[in-house]
Amino acid sequence: MRGPKDFRLSDGTVIDHLPVGTAARALEVLNLPRGGPVTVGMNVPSTTFGRKDIIRVEGVELSKSELDRLALLGQRVTVSLVRDGDVAHKVVLETPLEVEGILRCPNPTCITNQEEVVTVFHRIGDFPYRFRCHHCERTRSIHEETEEALPTRR
């Protein structure tokens, strides 16, 4: 059986330590594939977490805004930028305490769904996190709006 270390790239991005079951959500959030090859490992063994999901994307570098979205999916998602077969840069994403302008409130009678407002959500509790809307105070999980893929507000 091929292990995660066999997922080698020449240029692109490796998204590692995704919680098991979140790879599909990550693909959705990042709008992948975008043309180049994407390799997805689900429920693969991990020395740190026991099991994890992992995604290898050929020819794509993630933007700051895409990293911000990925940070909501897990506790310590790791993103490595690969150039010429070597890791050029590696970052461990921390889920922010306050999430601005990324999530949409699923409450249809929340004022943020009527007015032009930059949404703010507060992270609550331990992982798996829930997020409380700063305006209407309703809480949501990160998996509540699969069809919308964590859109940026207008």
Binding site: N107, T109, I111, T112, H135, C136, E137, R138
Partner: peptide, 10 residues
């Protein structure tokens, strides 16, 4: 007073 939740915060 407003019918939408979060209106006062906004």
């Amino acid at each position: 007073r407003h019918p939408m939740e979060g209106a006062a915060r906004l």
